[in-house]
């Protein structure tokens, strides 16, 4: 006997006159291997075609479908209903502007984050089309890739109490991103330059170490250790900035 699932879904379309925020229930019979990608599409196709949510790759690669599932920010495409109780509560990811229902505007948020971080390789060297690539140790490449795996889904922001309180706080995704550039030998920025970007209350020193980010990251990024690493590095830099005799 298949379970009868009840989906309690946040509904609000800011573009529709007369729409007001609230929860609406949908019922669906559970089938084998049902995940939230299939379930939400079924609900949309058979029960309410105006239901808004975001899926893209539906393979846990693109990060489009983060939402709060029974109280936890997760990727919906990777969530099987079998892992959940019969009552499934779906809320849009907090900390981002609501587009409608379960859909939030992560694109604008992350674009602005990347602009603030200046998250690109800073170098004065020009690309030489005729030269072979610059040599890099494979282990360094793998360490960079480890951090480069962030998919900007926004789960870490949704799970961060600090980010909920302070909209200018850049969050774990940003600290992980800057750690990736600190690691990259191609990026010639100094610690002083990095400090100007993240050595602030909007950056690493705004973090209270609650670790919601670390515990919900669907890519299992080493956020706890990276946040601590950036904090130590920037703390040292702060001392260097004011104590002229303190080097390294």
């Amino acid at each position: 006997m298949n379970r009868k699932l009840t989906f309690s879904i946040f509904r609000y379309n800011p573009q529709e006159t007369g729409s007001s925020p609230g929860m609406r229930e949908f019922r669906l019979e559970e089938t084998e291997n049902l995940n939230l990608f299939v379930a939400l599409n079924l609900i949309r196709e058979t029960q309410d075609p105006s239901l808004q949510f975001d899926f893209c790759c539906r393979a846990g690669i693109c990060g489009a479908c983060a939402m709060v599932i029974n109280g936890r920010p997760r990727l919906a495409c990777r969530t099987k209903t079998a892992e959940l109780p019969e009552k499934i509560v779906l809320m849009p990811l907090p900390g981002f502007r609501l587009v409608g229902d379960l859909s939030v505007d992560t694109g604008a948020w992350f674009r602005s984050m990347n602009e603030r971080l200046r998250s690109w390789i800073h170098t004065d060297e020009n690309f030489d089309p005729d030269a072979p690539e610059v040599v890099m140790d494979n282990q360094v490449a793998e360490e960079i890739y480890e951090l480069d795996r962030c998919i900007e889904c926004g789960c870490c922001i949704g799970a961060c109490a600090t980010a909920q309180m302070r909209s200018d706080f850049m969050g774990a995704a940003a600290m992980n991103r800057i750690a990736r550039f600190m690691l990259d030998p191609r990026d010639k920025r100094t610690n002083r330059e990095f400090f100007e970007i993240v050595g602030t209350d909007q950056g690493i020193f705004g973090c209270m170490g609650l670790l919601g980010c670390h515990d919900v990251c669907p890519k299992n990024l080493p956020l706890q250790d990276q946040l601590a690493h950036v904090r130590r590095k920037m703390g040292r830099q702060a001392l260097k900035n004011i104590l002229p005799w303190y080097k390294n």
């Binding site: 602009e115 603030r116 200046r118 800073h122 004065d124 400090f195 100007e196 970007i197 993240v198 050595g199 602030t200 209350d201 909007q202 950056g203 020193f205 705004g206 904090r231 920037m234 703390g235 830099q237 702060a238 001392l239 900035n241 004011i242």
Partner: peptide, 21 residues
């Protein structure tokens, strides 16, 4: 070509020192 995107640089030293203290 670098540094094209303008953004306000916040003085971080205060935040950092407060955190250290």
């Amino acid at each position: 070509m670098q540094y094209q995107v303008a953004f306000p640089t916040a003085s971080g030293s205060r935040a950092a020192l407060l955190d250290l203290v």
